[in-house]
Design a protein around this nucleic acid. Structure first.
Lengths: 218, 218
DNA sequence: GTCAGATGGATTGTTGACAATATTGAATTA
DNA sequence: TAATTCAATATTGTCAACAATCCATCTGAC
């Protein structure tokens, strides 16, 4: 692992976890001091992060974490809907039997986690992330998995940390997950796509509802 | 425009146009000499390109242009199908009337270009690119446009240059384009999505057919 | 008092040299 | 003769200094 990779990981998690506030204009030397880096690798990491849309960089004017809106979060869910629908369909066609049973096992442990840590949003979010992660890789579509895992999920997690809006509908989400896995196990790609799209659509509408209720501030 | 940006553009077009062969392991100093750059900006550009999946970089082992297969090209078309379907739907909902008439105008000029330069694959491909470009931006979905314009289209164009497989069905494609624009003009997002998906699906099957006929070598 | 312009400071962009590591080739041994 | 190990070399990763550019503040005029 090279220094630039370390810098990339550190900065990415820092942005996702909200340790670097959105819109915050932050200098390179300050970042170097904070993460014990030198400017060379840092700049490489900054370039990569800019290319992924997590921060913007104006020439001679410094870098700033991308400032975001709920409207854009909803747009992300629209993208997720179609892309993860495709991922579910291809996963149903291509996952090995071992992968499918492993997926079912993770759902079981998610269920236990939900029962144990009632309302602990963090674990729910992690379980959700695990589920979608497995299906993305199971699609055997390299670019699709790359775009989902490398771009979209990081942005969604960033919003999650920032708004602390991990749905709050764990049981319902788990049930939807089970039905999707069922469709995959039956190798019914069309149904898996339909269910996945509906699942993400429900999550998006849940956020919209919270906005209408005034529970999400901006 | 900074040196790193120049390097990024130069390298990207060089990769897309095939001037840098796939799988070719190329040294940094050679790249510097070729594009009149120093290693600092070059490395930044390399990081960005790696993050976009156009080249791979193993530590202490050099960079090499991503080597690709037709199977992966077909996977790209699967992704395009769902993403551009979404783009068409949102474009139908959100494009301004001015944008729509501009889109119709571009189709007219494409038609003239096809008539004039019969079989000149290059212009057809450029026209096709223009069409999809306008719809992606017209979706008003920042991230969606970014993913399509910044990632997928460059990869597709790379394959196009490499295989010189610009469909060869210009009139049919133009007709499909017209029907899509018609749906957008009528603000029928659902129809626009359906037609766009079918359009890209047809393009993918056209490539598959050529493979079966042995016209595409690898 | 306010706006315009210029200057100083700070920050970014760039460069070249230095250190660390993988590859390649040759030499040795089984 | 083939495989393996070792060393030389070339290439990449890293660093610190230099140059270019922007931003803010200060000064001056209207």
């Amino acid at each position: 692992m090279t220094r630039a990779d370390e810098a990339f990981d550190c900065l990415q998690t820092a942005i996702v976890k909200g340790e670097l506030a959105p819109g915050e204009k932050i200098g390179e030397v300050e970042l170097c001091a904070r993460f014990n880096l030198t400017r060379g690798p840092l700049r490489e990491a900054l370039g990569r992060l800019e290319s992924r849309g997590l921060l913007v960089r104006r020439p001679h004017a410094g870098v700033s974490v991308v400032s975001v809106s709920v409207a854009e979060l909803l747009e992300l869910y629209r993208i997720r809907e179609v892309m993860e629908g495709l991922a579910a369909r291809q996963a149903a066609e291509r996952m090995t039997d071992e992968e499918i049973s492993a997926l079912q096992s993770t759902l079981d442990s998610h269920e236990r986690l939900i029962e144990q840590a009632q309302g602990q949003a963090y674990y729910q979010a992690e379980g959700d992330y695990d589920f979608h992660h497995r299906i993305a890789t199971g699609s055997r579509n390299t670019k699709l998995a790359q775009m989902l895992l490398g771009d979209l999920y990081y942005m969604v997690r960033m919003y999650r940390y920032r708004l602390s809006t991990s749905a709050g509908r764990p049981h319902m989400a788990l049930g939807e997950h089970r039905r999707i896995v069922e469709a995959i196990a039956q190798r019914d790609g069309e149904l898996a796509e339909f269910l996945m799209k509906r699942h993400i659509n429900a999550a998006r509408r849940n956020i919209e509802k919270k906005i209408e209720e005034g529970l999400l501030s901006f």
